[in-house]
Amino acid sequence: MATQNGQDDAGSQPTRFESQWDQLTTGFGTRWNRFNVWRTQRPFLGGVLLCLAGILIAWVPMQILPDLLFIGGGMTGFLVIGTTFGVFVFLSGVYALYKPEHSREAGVVGVVLSILSLFGSLGGLLFGMLFGIIGGNLCFAWRPDDERDDEDDASEPGRVETVRSRLLEQLRDVAGAVSGRLRNGVEAITGGESDE
């Protein structure tokens, strides 16, 4: 019986391993799918860029601030302000990810604080400021899918499309008249050359 149980245990090992692997991969697949659904319902790239910008903006003064706090100096206030700007830029990115319906406001705050961080922390060596401006604009421009669908279903053209279509018609008329005159001029020139 011991050998039979030993054979049964040896025979069931691969199936046990396969079932555990299937459970692991199935769990990973569902988690990844849930993450993708969560990611598409918010300004993900804009929020991540704002968080990265906040880290870069706060990193620069945090390298100098501990030494100046110990020694004391006139630059301490600017470095504290730079660190505060970095923290608030990071928090605006987190807020845009957490509350996507307020992403426009979070984007504006992120852009303004990223620009102001130039005075307190050199804008995170300018890379933090650049990432903050890009991330804030992405958060500002992001709209939920249902708002995009509503704009696509608009039946009547707006004022901009009406003016655009009028301008295109006038441009076609002018281009047709110019091309007709050019054609007549070329024919006149080529006809004059054949007479000689």
Rank of each mutant, 00 (worst) to 15 (best):
T26K: 07
S194P: 12
V174F: 04
F140A: 09
N33Y: 07
A10N: 11
F140L: 00
L24C: 02
G128D: 04
F35L: 09
F28G: 10
I134F: 11
L68A: 10
D8C: 12
A177F: 03
L138A: 13
Q13C: 12
G132R: 09
L118K: 06
D9I: 15
G120R: 02
P43F: 09
S103E: 00
F78Q: 08
L167Q: 10
Q170L: 12
E147I: 04
D22M: 15
L130I: 12
E151R: 10
G135I: 10
T84Y: 01
S155H: 14
E147D: 06
T15S: 14
I55F: 09
L113H: 07
S155Y: 15
L113W: 02
G73V: 11
K99H: 10
G180L: 13
F85K: 00
Q41C: 08
V108R: 01
G158P: 14
N5T: 05
G27Y: 05
G72R: 07
P144T: 04
I115S: 09
S117P: 03
W32H: 10
S194I: 15
T3R: 00
L24F: 00
L68I: 12
D9V: 14
S103I: 05
P100E: 02
F88V: 01
R104Y: 01
L52A: 08
I133F: 07
V94T: 00
Q170W: 01
S12W: 13
V94W: 01
F127G: 07
P43D: 06
G93V: 08
